[in-house]
Structure formats: structure tokens, C-alpha cells
């Protein structure tokens, strides 16, 4: 009785989801959740690509970049994914080592990513800088470096994401590491009194910041653009740090086991095109990977200069990660 009702429930619930366009080949793109959401680039990307590919683009989502990689690793060689979109360079060394990805064979042109690009497995589709975002109407003295932040009165509170469960959290860990190397533990010790709390993900942290729980939140330099463009609210700003800002470069790659390798290639090419890239700024709220003909949308601050960009190479990031995490944990557990 139990099993029958389970099957009946399953049937009833899945019928609605059954695909109608069964004849066309299906391109499976794995991505993180907010990319495919109604407010992200996903729906527009799907429409634009389906107009030229004679295929059905289907998104499959995992929580964020790291969850995405874990998912692909879990599926391994049986994976039905064609393209994985949404890893970042802090993850690509591990992704490459898994042997699950195939070379893309594309030489990107007109690239806007600081520092150039030569990864044979992954192509960048957008990028941004991690930064602490604050409310101009509320925060009087804005710190302009980690040291200034550490020296600020204890009442200045920041909320950050946990590196173990969040991409920006890991970004901050590597930011401090890239800027201060062996001195990173000292910086963390200085920051500790200001860290109100550590959240599981970006949403929780940003939500708490907007509710006035903390004075600053770890986010992106492009976050204020969202408030300005979508909400006509210019009160939010990103604090620019003298040490420079750690970059997040988001990438996509083709699976070695892709059921539709040709479509996957076509999609990666499309990803680097003006059509796809022009969607990025006001849907994913990041900088596009290529220079747009029209330039950045109004309200989007120009990126901080490339010489202020900090980043560890994928291999460095992989090596630095575990030690940096241990330092972070011990500094904040005191």
C-alpha cells in the first residue's frame, strides 16, 4: 500500500514536469542556482541560445560553485552534463584534477578579464572583485584597508561568509592570504573583534546587512550597482581597500563525457559572444568577460584598475586553501 501511494505521488508530481520538446537534442548545462533563477541570466540565455542552436537548453542547478563541482564529482564519468558553468578559479585546479573536463579549444578575443587568460579547460564568463559593502548613510568612517578595519572601534561590525560553505567566504580567505601571505593570521586576529558572525552563504550575510545587523558585509564591488540600477538607491557603496581586491573569475567548461560535445562547443562560443555577455551586468551583477560594444551599463562603476587586482593562480589557490582555512579557524576560535 505504501509503495503504491509513493509511486502514485511520484507520478502525479512528475507528470507536470515532463518535457514536451522531446525530438530536439537537449544540451545539459549545470550551473549554480542564482544563475538559472528567474532574476539571473538563465532564462534570457536559454531563449537566446535556443534561437540559434536548434536544441533544448536545460539548466540543472546546484547551490553554488563549490556545490556544483561536488555534484559533478559525485556523478563522475556517468554525468549527463555537457557544460558546467559557474566554477571559479579557486576551484578549477580541483576540477581539472578530476579529469572530467575536456579542452575548449577556443582563443577568447577582446577579453576584459584583468591579467589575460590561457586555461585550456575553462573559459571565463564573468568576473568581479570581492569587497566590503556598506551603507553611506549609516557608516561614518569607512576603513580603506584590512589594517584600518582592524583598528576601527570594536563597534564596527562586519558579517562574512564561511569559507567552508560559501564561495565569497573562500574568496575572502584567499584575499587576505594573497595580500598578507604569512602575516594573514595577524590580520585575522585584528579582524576577529569586528566579525559579528559568519554565515553559511552570501544570501544570509547580505540579508543581515540589509536588515541593519552589521555595518559592512562581504560581497562584491558590483553590489552597489544593483541597488542603484534596480532600486534607484544610491546609498550602498563598496569600500575600496589599499591592499587591492581579490578577483573572482567565474568560468565554464565542457565535460569530457558530454553527450553533445558539438552543442557544448557551440554554447561556449555563444557564451563569449556579445549577446550572452551583454546580459551579464544587470542579471548576474558582475563584470562581463569581454569588452561590450556599448560599454558597461549606466550606474555600473568602472572596475578598479587592474594593478589593484589580487588573485592566486588555481594551483596556488588549491595549495593555499587548507592552511589558510586552518589559520582562519584558529584565529577566530580564540
Amino acid at each position: 500500500m505504501f509503495r503504491i501511494s509513493l509511486m502514485a505521488a511520484g507520478l502525479a508530481l512528475t507528470l507536470a514536469g515532463a518535457s514536451m520538446a522531446a525530438e530536439k537534442p537537449v544540451l545539459n548545462v549545470y550551473t549554480y542556482d542564482s544563475f538559472a533563477s528567474d532574476w539571473g541570466p538563465g532564462p534570457k540565455v536559454e531563449k537566446a541560445f535556443e534561437a540559434i542552436c536548434d536544441c533544448d537548453l536545460k539548466f540543472t542547478t546546484a547551490g553554488d560553485g563549490a556545490a556544483l563541482l561536488a555534484r559533478v564529482q559525485l556523478e563522475g564519468k556517468r554525468s549527463r552534463a555537457d557544460v558546467v558553468l559557474g566554477l571559479d578559479t579557486n576551484l578549477t585546479a580541483r576540477a581539472a584534477a578530476s579529469g572530467l573536463f575536456a579542452p575548449h579549444g577556443i582563443t577568447p578575443e577582446n577579453l576584459a578579464v584583468p591579467g589575460g587568460w590561457n586555461d585550456p579547460l575553462f573559459l571565463p564568463f564573468d568576473w568581479g572583485y570581492f569587497a566590503f559593502v556598506y551603507d553611506k548613510t549609516k557608516l561614518g568612517t569607512v576603513p580603506h584597508s584590512f589594517r584600518e578595519l582592524a583598528a576601527a572601534p570594536d563597534s564596527l561590525k562586519i558579517v562574512i561568509e564561511d569559507p567552508r560553505s560559501s564561495t565569497p567566504g573562500l574568496g575572502l580567505l584567499l584575499w587576505v592570504k594573497a595580500a598578507y601571505g604569512d602575516k594573514a593570521p595577524e590580520i585575522w586576529k585584528g579582524l576577529a573583534p569586528h566579525i559579528l558572525t559568519v554565515t553559511k552563504g552570501w544570501s544570509e550575510a547580505y540579508g543581515m546587512f540589509l536588515k541593519g545587523e552589521a555595518d559592512m558585509v562581504l560581497s562584491y564591488t558590483t553590489s552597489p550597482a544593483y541597488h542603484l540600477i534596480a532600486e534607484n538607491d544610491n546609498s550602498k557603496a563598496a569600500a575600496i581597500f589599499d591592499e587591492g581586491h581579490y578577483m573572482q573569475i567565474e568560468v565554464a567548461g565542457k565535460m569530457a563525457t558530454a553527450p553533445h560535445p558539438d552543442l557544448a562547443d557551440k554554447f561556449l562560443k555563444f557564451m563569449m559572444s556579445e549577446k550572452f555577455q551583454s546580459l551579464i551586468p544587470t542579471t548576474n551583477w558582475m563584470y562581463p568577460a569581454v569588452r561590450l560594444k556599448e560599454g558597461l551599463p549606466k550606474g555600473f562603476a568602472a572596475p578598479i584598475p587592474a594593478d589593484k587586482a589580487l588573485i592566486l593562480s588555481p594551483e596556488q589557490a588549491l595549495v593555499a586553501r587548507d592552511a589558510a582555512l586552518a589559520e582562519w579557524q584558529s584565529a577566530l576560535s580564540k
Binding site: D162, S165, A192, I195, L196, T197, V198, T199, K200, E204, M208, W328, Q329, L332, S333
Partner: peptide, 12 residues
């Protein structure tokens, strides 16, 4: 998990 982390104030 998430409750403990968010209100726990850090990796402790």
C-alpha cells in the same frame, strides 16, 4: 547547522 553557525558568531 545553519542556525548554529549564523548565531554562533564564528567557526567555534
Amino acid at each position: 547547522f545553519a542556525v548554529a553557525l549564523t548565531l554562533g558568531g564564528g567557526p567555534r
